[in-house]
């Protein structure tokens, strides 16, 4: 009993200590070097420019970033506390990753600001601390990755699925009948977002072809927007199909790419209510609950594969009958 209580309390105190400690560090950094800093600190540089373009009074440069950090941490903790026990377990890796990387990023940025202003008489003389910022970004990614790995490795052994949910519904297939089930979900918001980003990419390409501006920045505009547009379009519409071939989930307006599972490879299928907050957002998400294709919150078709014992979920309507048909097909093909 003690150990169980310990496992519940440990993360809570860890979160509090990390949040408070990082906030104190961010606020204290300028004070620690107060004798060597100007009255106003340079706090913002434009990309690629050496001289700063905005500044803050000494006290604000101490308090403001600490305040941002506290609000961010509070937001993460409140989001985590709002869900039920199952969703909390699923959201924990996200929360730990966000807290670790956010804290490292803000503390690193603060250290870079202090470093840039050190021994300057006026904030205009502070040059952009590029190596420090790069080191901060690297540390941020490393901290986030470490947090993610540590929290998900612990969960992989403790399966997130409650045992009572494993047995899904079974549909009775009448003798001599072939049953197929179709369902599709569209998220109009994601479609609009994909269209918008596609428009930006097309505009960049037109400007590129007609030579309206330098090709360097246009390529930098075109490539990410084109990629993001295609990626978002692929997750804006999804079609699920259950037949004697098993489960097939097709993405995007063209129904490609497709993921397939043979009915015999599926151990069980069921439905579950899932929300984007639970799985870390919209689209193709990997979380403690396995893979989820999340287009809208609500009913999801969840399958558990036989060999790897991994879970795949897709948010489609009428998932109950899809799961029932999959279970029926699985039992006839394997039994």
């Amino acid at each position: 009993m003690n150990s169980r209580r310990g496992t519940e309390r440990g993360p809570r105190w860890g979160t509090v200590a990390w949040t408070a400690g990082t906030a104190a560090l961010i606020a204290a950094l300028p004070w620690a070097a107060s004798g060597r800093l100007p009255d106003r600190l340079a706090t913002h540089w434009n990309f690629g420019r050496s001289e700063p373009d905005s500044s803050m009074p000494f006290w604000a440069a101490s308090v403001f970033p600490a305040l941002i950090w506290v609000i961010l941490a509070a937001g993460v903790v409140l989001t985590l506390r709002r869900g039920g026990e199952a969703s909390r377990a699923a959201a924990r890796p996200w929360a730990v990753t966000a807290l670790l990387s956010g804290g490292v990023l803000l503390a690193g940025a603060q250290a870079s600001v202090v470093r840039a202003n050190l021994d300057r008489a006026d904030w205009h003389q502070a040059s952009q601390p590029t190596p420090w910022l790069v080191a901060t970004l690297v540390a941020t990614v490393a901290a986030g990755a470490a947090g993610w790995l540590v929290t998900t490795r612990g969960q992989a052994t403790a399966a997130p699925v409650p045992p009572e949910h494993r047995e899904g519904p079974i549909l009775r297939i009448p003798e001599g009948q072939r049953l197929v089930w179709f369902s599709r979900t569209i998220n109009p918001w994601l479609q609009a977002l994909a269209a918008l980003m596609g428009l930006v990419a097309v505009a960049a390409v037109i400007a590129l072809v007609s030579g309206l501006a330098d090709s360097g920045p246009l390529w930098a505009l075109f490539a990410p927007f084109a990629f993001a547009s295609i990626a978002v379009a692929g997750c804006a519409a999804v079609q699920a199909r259950v037949s004697e071939r098993g489960l097939e989930v097709a993405f995007g307006p063209l129904g490609w790419p497709v993921r397939r599972w043979a009915a015999a490879d599926i151990e069980s299928a069921r439905t579950e209510h899932r929300t984007p907050a639970q799985v870390g957002g919209w689209g193709y998400r990997l979380s403690g609950l396995g893979t989820t294709v999340m287009l809208r919150s609500g009913e999801c078709l969840v399958i558990r594969t036989r060999g790897k014992r991994k879970e795949f979920a897709v948010s489609v309507d009428d998932a109950e009958r899809g799961a029932a048909l999959l279970n029926a097909l699985g039992s006839t093909q394997s039994g």
């Binding site: 001599g176 089930w181 009428d318």
Partner: peptide
């Protein structure tokens, strides 16, 4: 939607 085909048809 659920579609049914009778194999003996």
């Amino acid at each position: 939607m659920l579609l049914r085909l009778d194999k003996r048809d």
